[in-house]
C-alpha cells in the first residue's frame, strides 16, 4: 500500500497555509524555499491547491535528457536530483499540469516530493483540503 496526497478542492478556504508550510519545510540555511504547492483562486470563494500528481507515466521523467528525475520507491513520488539537473527546463514546459517550478537562485527545477513521506502541506492544512492518504 502506498500513500498519496489527495486534494479536495471544495474544502480549500484559500488560507495558503500549505504554501507556507511547504516553503518552510524546504528551507535551506534558514531561508524558506519556493513553495511546491500553489493555491489558485478560480472564483469568489473558490480555491484549488495545485501540486504534482506524481503521474504513473510522467512527462517530466520522459522529457528529462539527463535522468535527473526519478521515482522514490518508498514514497512513490517523483524527485529531482538537484545536482544532476542541467537547468534545461524542458520538464517545466513538458509537464501538462504545470507542476514543475524553477527555483530562482540555483536555477534548478523543484517539485513536490511529498516531503519524503511526511508532507507538511497536509499536516498543516486546517480543513483537510490536502490529505496524505493510503490508496
Amino acid at each position: 500500500m502506498s500513500k498519496m496526497l489527495m486534494v479536495t478542492p471544495g474544502r480549500c478556504i484559500g488560507c495558503r497555509t500549505c504554501e507556507v508550510a511547504c516553503a518552510f519545510r524546504h528551507a535551506e540555511a534558514g531561508v524558506p524555499g519556493r513553495s511546491r504547492v500553489q493555491v489558485r483562486t478560480l472564483a469568489k470563494d473558490v480555491w484549488v491547491p495545485i501540486l504534482c500528481l506524481q503521474c504513473d507515466d510522467a512527462a517530466c521523467v520522459q522529457a528529462c535528457p539527463v535522468s535527473a528525475l526519478w521515482r522514490n520507491a518508498e514514497t512513490g513520488a517523483i524527485e529531482v536530483q538537484e545536482d544532476r539537473c542541467v537547468r534545461c527546463n524542458v520538464c517545466v514546459v513538458a509537464c501538462p499540469f504545470g507542476n514543475m517550478t524553477v527555483e530562482s537562485p540555483k536555477k534548478a527545477v523543484i517539485k513536490c516530493d511529498v516531503c519524503g513521506g511526511d508532507p507538511a502541506c497536509a499536516q498543516f492544512c486546517p480543513t483537510r483540503a490536502l490529505e496524505y492518504l493510503e490508496v
Binding site: V7, T8, P9, G10, Q38, R40, L42, V46, V48, I50, V92, V93, C95, P96, F97, G98, N99, M100, T101
Partner: peptide, 16 residues
C-alpha cells in the same frame, strides 16, 4: 507552466 497550472486548477474544480 503558469497556464498549465491554471488549466489543472480548472479541471479539478470542474470535477469537483
Amino acid at each position: 507552466d503558469e497556464c498549465s497550472r491554471s488549466r489543472t486548477a480548472q479541471t479539478m474544480y470542474r470535477h469537483m
